[in-house]
Design a protein around this nucleic acid. Structure first.
Lengths: 171, 171
DNA sequence: CCCAAGTAGTTGACAGATCAACTAATAGGG
DNA sequence: CCCTATTAGTTGATCTGTCAACTACTTGGG
């Protein structure tokens, strides 16, 4: 027995679709015009830049960046080619590998950040009232938490930045 | 002079990123498991199904579905191969082409709809309070409208379903 | 009536993402 | 200590999306 969407719910859903997809596209566009990398790569570099020693194990980075292992592997290879990242073997687990942000990578990130931020402000935060921004934060956090609770436990790691202290890494 | 994001703003932005990307992924997964097509294809078929005569000119469909011409052309070819859609020449403009939903396409859509709806409810609507759903609708509509106003005029067409009567098509 | 400019749509080359299969190393129960 | 199950990461085939170039048709000014 399908519980169909009411007109209002449909409207909410469609505006969600339009807003998220247009926002994603606009961000990509702004980003790629200014800096040499895509929004996705930007996200990875940010994660690395915030990590201790500007390095993360591949699998942690995959979780934090919501990447599949395979996608990450391919992406990182490209970043290595561009010189933003290097890979180092892991002493304590010889299967493992560290992805390490290079100096050049960090500088590229610093250069790109203002463009990114400006785009976020202009297209997401500025058009909303302060109250709406707060509501949006609450709403997205709820949705994200709900989705995390469904998936594997450690996906929740991706939320660690979203408030509260960082949970202990799972390994 | 970059106006950096406050901690709270950062949290909002990141939860937006996580929520939108996880939501998209989950929806794809639920969808593809049950029906034979992707969320994107689903969107196109819905647009066709709602149009008069279950047909749309390629360019209108591109606007409504937020597709580039090229992407649409490729996607429609695939849908034609699968038998969900056919293409018909346009009498009044011999450059033009109609994308027409087939009977099989409509049936596939009907079969997929409950899965789609269920996923939207479960992951987006249900975890939120009624009030939050309303807020989210308002927020997304604002963002979408803002983005539309930046881009070309006719992108606004994509919003026609979001409430209010349909504006006159631009041509 | 003609010609330039614009529009509709397609195409093919390329970049990025997904998927399944693979190697290599660790972990843990007997 | 071994043997299986699990985890880390990579690879290559395939699919989808993007971009720029292209054909074909329409439109509107002179």
């Amino acid at each position: 027995m399908t519980r169909w969407l009411s007109i209002e719910e449909q409207a909410v859903w469609r505006s969600w679709l339009v807003a998220t997809s247009m926002m994603r596209e606009r961000l990509s566009q702004d980003q790629e015009e200014g800096s040499g990398f895509s929004v996705e790569e930007y996200g990875l570099l940010v994660q690395l830049s915030e990590a201790e020693g500007r390095r993360l194990r591949m699998s942690s980075l995959a979780v934090l960046g919501l990447y599949s292992r395979s996608r990450l592997s391919h992406s990182i290879s490209r970043l290595v080619d561009k010189g933003w990242v290097t890979k180092e073997p892991c002493d304590t687990d010889r299967r493992g590998a560290w992805a390490v942000l290079t100096k050049a990578g960090f500088e590229a990130l610093e250069a790109a950040a203002p463009i990114h931020i400006e785009s976020v402000r202009e297209h997401l935060l500025d058009p909303l009232t302060t109250e709406q921004v707060a509501q949006l934060g609450q709403i997205c956090a709820t949705i994200a938490e709900h989705l995390c609770s469904i998936e594997g436990a450690d996906t929740a790691l991706a939320l660690r930045v979203m408030g509260g202290p960082a949970p202990e890494p799972s390994k």
